[in-house]
């Protein structure tokens, strides 16, 4: 079973569908003279926060130790892949929902342009968004509050263009964002795939499976997979999904013109139910 569901789920349900994991007060009473200076957020001390990890890669022992440290840290701030269907349920629970620029993409590709190029794919969730003006650097370009329906359309729009839907927690299990992610500019996918930092991005509750009767071998799905889980089998002329590599994002299911790929529950497969 998913560890997060076990700890934070509502009676065995998926943890991110439990309204408690979105709940925060709006205000806090401050005692006079005891006001605390807020923590300065420097985007994880810059992406440079990861620098030692990467520089240590040629020293296996030190690398492993460092990797464990980061994994521990990301138990409090991490995420999981979710399907479009579940993401739509999430935005029915979460309030408020605010569209903002993707912070990862800003770090890795320095994207921040107006118009078409503007990478406004992230959705900030929860009452903290009412205070976004406190940190104009983090919310560069401002935020735009969306209705539940607008949020659903936003997620669907980018997901169908190939982006993976993920959750970000800020103090697990508090859910602070829904991201639309793309390797390699997404730091979460990258940290999980390239550096093995698991709690930064757990696999989703489903996995993709090809219906060989319907698959025509067009290869569209292969181009879309961000996790390297799909390949064309030359002799059978069918696409093959390695379900142990699949994160269950569902991008391929929407890419397939034949509707030949479907998502099935991870936990119904004994061989995968402990694989997160």
């Amino acid at each position: 079973m998913c560890e997060l569901c076990e700890k934070y789920g509502d009676n065995g349900g998926r943890w991110y569908l439990n309204p408690e994991n979105y709940a925060r007060p709006l205000y806090k009473k401050v005692e006079k003279g005891k006001e605390k200076e807020p923590m300065i957020l420097t985007e994880l001390q810059g992406p440079f926060y990861y620098k030692p990890l990467i520089e240590l890669k040629d020293n296996p022992e030190a690398f492993e130790k460092m990797r464990e440290g980061y994994s521990k840290f990301h138990e409090t701030m991490g995420g999981q892949v979710v399907s479009l269907e579940d993401a739509k349920k999430m935005v029915e629970i979460a309030q408020p929902i605010a569209r903002m620029d993707c912070i990862c993409r800003r770090i890795t590709r320095a994207t921040l342009e107006d118009g078409e190029q503007r990478p406004r794919t992230c959705l900030g969730l929860g009452v903290g968004m009412f205070r976004w003006e406190e940190w104009p650097e983090r919310y560069k370009g401002g935020v735009e509050f969306l209705s539940t329906e607008e949020a659903k359309e936003h997620i669907e729009h980018w997901h169908k263009r190939g982006m993976v839907i993920t959750i970000m927690t800020f103090g697990t299990p508090y859910i602070g964002g829904i991201c639309l992610c793309d390797y390699p500019d997404c730091l979460a996918i990258r940290m999980r795939l390239d550096y093995g930092i698991k709690p930064m991005l757990l696999k989703g509750h489903q996995v993709a499976k090809v219906n060989y009767e319907e698959c025509t071998g067009c290869g569209t799905c292969v181009q879309r997979c961000q996790f390297g889980a799909i390949k064309m089998e030359v002799t059978t002329k069918k696409s093959n999904i390695d379900m142990t590599r699949c994160f269950g994002c569902g991008v391929c299911t929407y890419a397939c013109p034949q509707d030949a790929i479907s998502l099935i529950d991870r936990e119904k497969l004994p061989g995968l139910k402990e694989e997160w």
Partner: peptide, 12 residues
């Protein structure tokens, strides 16, 4: 990767 070397409240 590019990032700010400092981040302050109410300031870009």
């Amino acid at each position: 990767a590019v990032a700010p070397t400092k981040v302050e409240r109410f300031k870009e």
